[in-house]
């Protein structure tokens, strides 16, 4: 293939835009998953502590 094609700028920017949006979707999904998992873990631990204190 020819690497001197003048259209490489368009191809590169299309892939840069598409893949960075893809990565953003992955990043936000993973970050949200981690955050909610942490909150749920903390809440459940607090619930267990409270119940064991009551008994």
């Amino acid at each position: 293939m020819s690497w001197l094609d003048p259209n490489w700028g368009f191809i590169a920017s299309a892939y840069a835009a598409g893949l960075s949006l893809t990565l953003a979707a992955i990043f936000f999904t993973v970050r949200d998953a981690r955050k909610q998992k942490k909150r749920l873990g903390a809440l459940e631990a607090a619930g267990i502590r409270r119940r064991s204190k009551e008994t």
């Binding site: 992955i26 999904t29 949200d32 909610q36 749920l40 619930g47």
Partner: peptide, 18 residues
């Protein structure tokens, strides 16, 4: 991503309930 987001959403609803 859909599976992961569904799991997160279920966790979020459980947090609200707790």
């Amino acid at each position: 991503l859909h599976l992961a987001a569904m799991r997160t959403e279920l966790a979020r609803r459980r947090i609200t309930a707790l």
